[in-house]
């Protein structure tokens, strides 16, 4: 049998393998080097895994499909920097599985929304966006502040994230490693054995939805929104150092 187009066109199996080989070249050339090039993820201080409460908030963000209208990726363009703040770094989503960069902005980018509005604004805005932004087309999410957060399985969720590389600690040795890397305060929030306890404590202390009676889904979501983009202290970084990572 000659190796020509007839061979491909008359053998479905050969065609399938050849097609997959041809397509994988594109993937290999575009994606594989990013895992090898050492500058892909910037080596900067400050980025930490989410606390259990923030992590559950992120789950709700994904569940409600927020990413379909909101990106979390400020591109290095002047107009975006003026509106949203410093461009996003790869390092800032290194503990995101999956990342929430999104691909479409019906609403604004949320990569640096943390600290921009008060908790109360977020509660009002989630219940009825037009109450604070009259021209908004965002749907109402009134159930978030009325629904108790299910955090019974939060330890399992952290364990799952741990298996894909997020440094939640399951042992004393891992805890000590976190103390070294993130400091004792953060390391404490990354303990899988204390996940539920830490979640409730953060919700009580933060009182994100303005109601301490129970931990609501809004508590978790707002805790997550309020930390977005706030982990890196850009006043301590030189702009040209970030340039040199690319």
């Amino acid at each position: 049998m000659k190796l020509n187009s007839e061979l491909l066109e008359t053998n479905a199996g050969v065609l399938l393998v050849a097609t997959m080989l041809a397509i994988s070249v594109g993937g290999l050339v575009e994606i594989a080097p990013l895992f090898l090039i050492k500058n892909t993820v910037e080596d900067i201080p400050g980025v930490r895994p989410y606390t259990p409460l923030e992590s559950r908030g992120r789950d709700i963000y994904v569940r409600e499909g927020c990413y379909t209208c909101h990106s979390q990726m400020i591109r290095p363009f002047r107009d975006e920097q003026l509106r949203y703040g410093h461009y996003s770094l790869a390092a800032e989503s290194k503990y995101d599985h999956p990342f929430q960069w999104g691909s479409k902005r019906t609403g604004p980018d949320l990569a640096r929304v943390g600290g921009k509005y008060s908790n109360e604004w977020h509660v009002q805005h989630l219940i009825q966006p037009t109450s604070v932004v009259p021209e908004s087309v965002m749907p109402n999410y009134p159930w978030l502040s009325a629904t108790p957060l299910d955090y019974s399985d939060v330890a399992d969720r952290l364990r799952a994230l741990r298996t894909v590389g997020v440094p939640y600690s399951a042992s004393e040795a891992e805890y000590q490693a976190n103390v070294k890397q993130f400091g004792p305060e953060v390391a404490e929030t990354l303990r899988i054995d204390k996940a539920q306890e830490n979640l409730v404590a953060q919700a009580q202390a933060g009182n994100f939805d303005g109601d301490r009676a129970f931990v609501s889904e809004a508590d978790a979501l707002i805790a997550y929104l309020q930390v977005l983009g706030t982990m890196v202290d850009f006043s301590k970084l030189k702009p040209e150092d970030l340039v040199k990572y690319r």
Binding site: E240, V243, R246
Partner: peptide, 27 residues
Amino acid sequence: TYTNAEGQNESWHWNTRAKLLRETQEA
């Protein structure tokens, strides 16, 4: 070419971050 934190001119190969830094400084 852009100005670094020490106020000196510095060059780096083309990338969007360098381009943004220069544009920001020009503006």
